[in-house]
Design a protein around this nucleic acid. Structure first.
Ligand SMILES: NC(=O)c1ccc[n+]([C@@H]2O[C@H](COP(=O)([O-])OP(=O)(O)OC[C@H]3O[C@@H](n4cnc5c(N)ncnc54)[C@H](O)[C@@H]3O)[C@@H](O)[C@H]2O)c1
Ligand SMILES: NC(=O)c1ccc[n+]([C@@H]2O[C@H](COP(=O)([O-])OP(=O)(O)OC[C@H]3O[C@@H](n4cnc5c(N)ncnc54)[C@H](O)[C@@H]3O)[C@@H](O)[C@H]2O)c1
Lengths: 204, 204
DNA sequence: CTCGGTTTGTTCTCGCGTTCACAAACTCCT
DNA sequence: AGGAGTTTGTGAACGCGAGAACAAACCGAG
């Protein structure tokens, strides 16, 4: 389920606050979901709670982390080191959650002199070798929209099976490759849509 | 619906390619959805297609833009001009879609000397005045997680009713305020989850 | 040991979104 | 003008996730 990471973060927060055990009601409130939904999600992993008591925070946290795969170390490559690529490379929240940026790639030779967050920017053509050397399975695309499909094809071609795409394009990839799209303009447009309905008061 | 912006972008692409009219099948492929779903979504706005022919690209594009509210100009404030805030402020895709960044706010006085993308960074305490002067309805939070709830409260307090949150926290806001959350770590964790299932081959 | 209070795990129902399938409507060719 | 082919708009069935409700299990007090 896509909610497990949210639970994981809520549990981490609780653990840092010194909470040793918590009820589904409490955790659900921290995660912003219904308590019945939370219990159903957790029961899908197994019976890690104790009736009448609740869940052991650290134990449940480990179980969810194991289920998601955060106990492993995931090597990641980022392609397109522009505005967004810089921010992503500098983001500490990735490493702390088991994701290790092994390479930053860009097609622009002028970028290749840069070192961002301790990793030097390398030519995009190094992709195949880097993916092979580090067994990379996850790639991040932060290039302009026009280049995104080409980058995705190259990624798929050398064995990457999960792509996080920031470019505003629908990528076509073969079966078995997961793509998640983050489109900030669309997020804003959805907000604007609701905003317009609020003020304009359309009822239809 | 949350898919309208996707259709809008697909239509824009088609228009730039010189396509004057298109079938629901064609547009659905470009948007990555089922054609029946697309037709039902569009019929919700009205009957803008012609049977046996398809949809007039530019006409439909305008109708969707009007429905979403992209024909208007939406003033936006960004709070937290760190790594991510810089990238957002520099992003040209916002302005081209009707969103105008009227202010960049940060609590750190050292940031106040900076000018990012032609807009100078101002103290966070200027929030109320800026929102009032520009009738801002949409706020973007790019601060660390600990500050996010405080920032959201201040935003709500001065009349902002739509928030785009990049901090990894669940914000609690009163009824009537929309919050959309973008959490990149969660996106990666979802990919890792599927990745693990692929390789490890769990069947349960 | 028993009983009341508490909380999980699960079942059942409801509602929504998706998808199929088809009639209505339009174009073009003859 | 008429018919064949094409495409929209929509009614109906399907599937699935969400939420309510309840029984089973656990703890602690007496
Ligand atoms: N900056 C933002 O806040 C933001 C917000 C939303 C979406 N986006 C999207 O993210 C993407 C990147 O945005 P940005 O602001 O960083 O753009 P940018 O122009 O600053 O950076 C793009 C980088 O990609 C590199 N590049 C171009 N073609 C390439 C290729 N074929 N292979 C490898 N690298 C290539 C360029 O050299 C450049 O360094 C864009 O698609 C944009 O629409 C950005
Ligand atoms: N950088 C990324 O790529 C990335 C990716 C995913 C999520 N995030 C999240 O986005 C947020 C920002 O990330 P970042 O890398 O830009 O962090 P950052 O530390 O570079 O920037 C945060 C900025 O917020 C300012 N700030 C702190 N408290 C504030 C307050 N109360 N009011 C106003 N401004 C305040 C700081 O002065 C700083 O300039 C974080 O919550 C982070 O978890 C960032």
């Amino acid at each position: 389920m896509a909610r497990l990471p949210v639970y994981l973060r809520a549990l981490t927060t609780l653990s840092e606050q010194g909470t040793a055990t918590c009820s589904s009601e409490h955790l659900a409130a921290a995660a912003g979901v219904n308590s019945a939904k939370l219990r159903k999600d957790l029961s899908y992993l197994g019976s890690y709670g104790t009736r009448g008591v609740g869940y052991d925070v650290d134990y449940l946290r480990y179980q969810i982390a194991r289920e998601i795969g955060v106990t492993q170390d995931w090597p990641v490559v980022i392609v397109g080191i522009g505005n967004l690529g810089h921010a992503l490379a500098n983001y500490s929240g990735f490493r702390s959650r088991g994701f290790r940026v092994v390479a930053l790639l860009d097609a622009d030779p002028r970028r290749h002199e840069e070192v961002v967050a301790g990793v030097d920017v390398r030519p995009f053509d190094d992709l195949e070798q880097i993916v092979r050397d580090h067994s990379v399975a996850i790639g991040v695309i932060a290039t302009p929209a026009l280049a995104a499909q080409d980058v995705a094809d190259r990624m798929v071609g050398c064995g990457i099976t999960s792509i996080l795409n920031f470019a505003p394009t629908v990528l076509s990839v073969p079966e078995g490759v997961d793509v998640r799209k983050v489109d900030l303009s669309i997020e804003l447009q959805i907000l604007a849509y609701h905003e317009q309905r609020k003020t304009h008061g359309a009822t239809t």
